[in-house]
Every structure is written in C-alpha cells, then in structure tokens.
C-alpha cells in the first residue's frame, strides 16, 4: 500500500489541480486526473523523501481561514502604510526563535509571515533555530514575536508536529 500510493495527500491534490487546469468535470477527465495523481508521485518519489502527515485536519482548516482573513487585513494595513508618509515608517529586523523542526512547517511559517501584516521573512539561520524577519513599521519587536508565535507557530506545531 505504502509503495503503491506513497503520498496519500499529494495524489488527490494533483487530481484536483488537473481538473482545475482543464476546467471541466467529465468522467474521462476525472479518471485522467486520478491517473496523473497516482503516476506523478510514483515517478518523482526521489524529490519527496518524507510523506506529509496532517495530525489535525480541523485545525488546518481553521488555520487556512485565519490566514485568508489576515492576508486581506494585511493588504489594507500595508496599503495604508504605503500611502502614508514614508519618512515616518520605522522598519526593523527581528530575530524569531523557532520551535518548529520539520522543513514543511518552517516553510509554511515563513510563507505565512510574508503574507501577513507588514512582515517579510528574510533568512533562516544555518542551525534552523532563528528566522530573520523584516517588519515594515513596528515599534515593539517583542510584541511582534509573541504575536507570530501565538497566531501562526502554535497552530502549525499542532498540525504537523505534536502527536
């Protein structure tokens, strides 16, 4: 089973992507999508050494919802900052200590940080314990770290790492 279907989450995702790409839902296309979703993970097995496990699907859904709302809010925050006086902005680099260990969780956290209000993740330290974050306008670095840890890091840790 594990050898025939190495990535149980990737395969349906690829099938859905195929259906979106051809923009039609006919039995033939669904069959082709499922076939592609089965074949591509098998052929590209060497690029995906570890299978993704989602421990709490409901938390993941809630996280995606929260992220979407935050992205929309972030845009209006950044738009206001851009339209305001550029000389009044206080940009700052913040070093965020990471509790996450898996590659996927760290990259998802970095992506979430970049998409949300006024912060861009800039660099991961060599030992993978610190993430350098650039904030567009932030007076209090400690509050920013606390917010990121509470809002984004803890749900990701629950989803991908804790049992």
């Amino acid at each position: 089973m594990a050898r025939l279907l190495p990535h149980p989450i990737l395969s349906p995702t690829l099938a859905c992507l195929w259906l979106l790409l051809v923009n039609s839902i006919t039995p033939g296309q669904i069959f082709l999508g499922l076939l592609l979703g089965w074949m591509i993970p098998l052929l590209t097995l060497r690029f995906w050494p570890e299978a993704v496990t989602i421990r709490k699907p409901l938390t993941l859904l809630r996280y995606i919802g929260l992220l979407l709302i935050d992205i929309i809010m972030a845009n209006f925050t950044v738009a206001r900052l851009i339209l305001g006086d550029p000389d009044r902005l206080k940009p700052i680099f913040v070093e965020l200590p990471l509790d996450l260990t898996s590659d996927l969780a760290i990259s998802l956290l970095a992506n979430s940080i970049t998409l949300t209000p006024g912060t861009v993740s800039a660099r991961l330290s060599e030992d993978r314990r610190y993430l350098l974050v650039h904030a567009l306008n932030e007076a209090d670095p400690d509050a920013l770290i606390a917010t990121i840890k509470r809002r984004y890091e803890r749900p990701l840790q629950e989803i991908f790492e804790l049992c």
Binding site: I71, I72, A74, N75, V78, A79, L81, I82, L83, P86, D87, L89, P91, T114, L115, G118, V120, A122, H134, L136
Partner: peptide, 23 residues
Amino acid sequence: LGLLRLKDFYMRLHGPTKATTLG
C-alpha cells in the same frame, strides 16, 4: 506605488508581495 515610494529595498519588498498579490 510602494515600489516607487519607499526608501530601501527591504521596505520596497513589502509592496509587491502583499498588495499586488491580493490585487
């Protein structure tokens, strides 16, 4: 506009990544 107005590269990075993506 952020790309044009803001002062250093790291600040300019914020405009296109957020506003343009949602736009």
